[in-house]
């Protein structure tokens, strides 16, 4: 018996894929005429240009936010060194919960673990 057994439908897909050769698993080449290929390329180019602009904008905003945080902390350092030390105090026991899921764009396949128990060590 397999150690990491998956459910039946997934196993079937895995079996089917293992029977196919690697070349069959490649995405299909676009069988387009010259004009449509250039149109396709243009659409892709436009999307890339748009995404680049969006990313640049986001990057600029994040930079500004970071700069603002930095300036606020510098300000705090000047005005009240005690509060600055308190804000920067390392919290040894308080860590990011290791059991927490990574933030993703989509919900997980298993949204909630009902019978969750933290590991013995960290109890």
């Amino acid at each position: 018996m397999r150690i990491n057994s998956v459910n039946a439908s997934t196993q079937r897909v895995v079996n089917q894929l293992s029977a196919l050769s690697a070349s069959k698993k490649q995405p299909k080449l676009l069988n387009l005429c010259k004009e449509d290929l250039i149109k396709h390329k243009t659409i892709t180019n436009a999307w890339n240009v748009y995404q680049r602009k969006v990313n640049e904008k986001r990057h600029i905003q994040l930079n500004a936010q970071y700069k603002s945080i930095h300036e606020a902390m510098e300000d705090l350092k000047q005005t009240s060194p005690q509060l600055y030390a308190l804000a920067n105090k390392p919290e040894k026991k308080k860590k990011f919960p290791l059991d927490m899921r990574m933030p993703t764009d989509y919900p997980p396949t298993k949204p909630w673990v009902y019978n969750y128990e933290p590991s013995q060590k960290r109890k």
Binding site: D36, K39, H40, T42, I43, N45, A46, W47, V49, Y50
Partner: peptide, 13 residues
């Protein structure tokens, strides 16, 4: 819909 999308892309670029 390649022509409609192409039109949008063309205008943007």
């Amino acid at each position: 819909a390649i022509d409609e999308t192409f039109k949008l892309a063309y205008e943007y670029l």
